[in-house]
Design a protein around this nucleic acid. Structure first.
Lengths: 118, 118
DNA sequence: CCCATAAACTTGCATTTTGCAAGTCACTAA
DNA sequence: TTAGTGACTTGCAAAATGCAAGTTTATGGG
């Protein structure tokens, strides 16, 4: 009945969020999605150079957590794209807060631009 | 000259933040500090049951990153407490944004109360 | 004096997660 | 026929995590 099968370390909202987002890659995939990326190769092309197996794993987990949906954009051969759900889009303020803090304390950093689509 | 010695994956602020905060425990320690905890045993007492070696490691990294300071609160035997720096306190809006999102999407979750001090 | 307790860690080792390179599969275009 | 594209998977080494137990310096009680 619950939307996550995993054991929860506590009922603290921060803990629960970290249980799905707490690693070095997941939030970067969300960032890319927020910036407008949708496809595997687009995520792979980001400058942080996520490993292919990690990306596949994170996309799967994000789907399982209801933050992302995978849809076919072409059959034969089947090709897929990933889109943020409402729940996933809801993370934008979190990313914004991180960017604000990051820009303040790491002045060399610069937010990435949205990507355009065909 | 820079305040972090580690290799940066990219100049994106989110990436840079994840380079120090991106794991399952670091932000929970920050949460505890924001809630008013200061001592090793207080962090250990949190319901998520962080392992002792991990806690020591995270406190060290947080100090190295300038988010936390360690100060002696008693000599003989020396005992220490940890306090958020200004930079560390600056993360509160990030925690707030996470809590807002968490409470919305995981209704069972409840933010933790501040701890009182002697 | 002897023992238990306290606080803040450290150590050793097993398990899990990451990272890296290469391979697969189903087509399409040259 | 061969090369390329897109979305992955596989195998294995390296690094991070988790767990239990140990260390150090002192205080308080019997």
């Amino acid at each position: 009945m619950n939307n996550k099968m995993t054991f929860e370390r506590s009922h603290c909202p921060i803990t629960i969020v970290l249980d799905t987002l707490g690693d070095k890659w997941t939030l970067l995939v969300i960032r890319d999605l927020v910036l407008g990326k949708r496809r595997y190769q687009e995520f792979m092309a980001s400058p942080e150079r996520i490993a292919s197996n990690i990306l596949a794993n994170r996309l799967k987990k994000l789907e399982a957590a209801g933050l992302v949906t995978r849809k076919t954009y072409q059959g034969n051969p089947a090709r897929y794209e990933y889109l943020l759900t409402r729940k996933g889009k809801g993370l934008e303020p979190v990313l914004e807060a991180i960017i604000v803090w990051g820009q303040k304390h790491y002045p060399g950093s610069k937010r990435f631009p949205r990507v355009e689509h065909r």
